[in-house]
Computed example of a mutant assay.
Amino acid sequence: MQDIKDTFKEVVLAIIPITAVIILLQFTLIGLPLDVFLQFLVGVVLVSTGLFLFLIGVHIGLLPIGEMIGSTLPKTNKVWLIVLVGFILGFVVTVAEPDVRVLSSQIEDVSSGNISQMVLIYAVALGVAIFVALAMLRIIFGIELKWLLFGGYAAVFILSAFTASDFVPISFDAGGVTTGPMTVPFILALGVGVASVLRGKSSSSDSFGLVALASIGPILAVLVLGVIYG
């Protein structure tokens, strides 16, 4: 019950500032038509309700199951299985990510259909999946995060010199949208679960940084698309 109260308070504190600013602008500067303003207020209620239900679902569903899967996999003593499950979960969670779908839809509209929505979604999901699998290997073998980040971003900047210019900003936006409400809780919980079993006391330092790694994958994937389309 306390978790529900805390979540409700968190949602209210998140929504109130933007609502207050819009209402202030409505009566001072903007003066939107009444029907548009009422649509905004209805939207606020719907967004608040949806966000509240989503966060409840994350706490009672996504986080526990992600951490449980992560803590169970190492007990199989099969590195390939841990990496494969990380790859599959990284892919399917990203396909379900709302932010990715919004970005891909807008890009399809702007490009007049030249860049297909589904092609972009699957490319981004594949990039996340590869780097989640790589993050699993990092946790298993204790590889330092800085070297993987350095290598990943070095590849990004090198590849950006050979890709179509339109794809460079799209690629970095793709890296940003994968840090959304579906992907981050599940991937973090998975990493914490794996690291808590394999790395013991250093589980915190080994599990965090996983999202930073996962966000490199979509950037590289979209840059590769740029090379292909270019």
Results as ranks from 00 to 15, higher is better:
G142A: 00
F141G: 06
V119W: 09
I115R: 14
S112V: 10
V95C: 02
W147R: 06
I187F: 03
G175H: 05
T179N: 13
A155P: 04
T179A: 15
S111M: 13
R101H: 06
A164C: 06
A123E: 07
A155C: 10
T183R: 02
V124N: 10
S171K: 12
I170E: 11
N114C: 10
A123Y: 04
A96H: 01
I115G: 12
A161C: 10
V119R: 11
G152N: 04
F131Q: 05
E97A: 13
D166F: 14
R138K: 13
A189Y: 01
V124F: 02
M118N: 15
I187H: 04
T178D: 11
S105R: 00
A129T: 11
G127A: 11
L190C: 09
L134R: 00
P185R: 07
A96F: 06
L134S: 07
Y153N: 08
T163C: 10
S165G: 05
L120T: 12
F141I: 05
A189Q: 03
F131Y: 11
I187P: 02
L134C: 08
V95P: 03
M182H: 04
Q117T: 13
V100R: 02
I140R: 08
V156M: 13
L134F: 03
E97V: 02
D109H: 03
V102W: 01
N114P: 00
M136A: 13
G180M: 04
Q117V: 03
G142H: 02
D173E: 10
I140H: 08
I143V: 15
S116A: 15
S105D: 01
V124A: 13
Y122L: 15
N114H: 14
F186G: 08
G175A: 08
G180K: 05
R101Y: 00
F131C: 09
G127K: 09
A174N: 07
A154I: 05
Q117K: 15
M136W: 00
Y122K: 10
G127I: 09
T94Q: 09
K146M: 10
Y153H: 04
M136S: 09
G176W: 07
I130K: 04
I107G: 05
I115D: 09
V184Y: 04
A189G: 03
S160K: 08
N114Q: 15
L126V: 12
M136H: 05
E144G: 08
I143Q: 06
S111E: 09
A174V: 08
L148M: 14
D166C: 03
A189W: 02
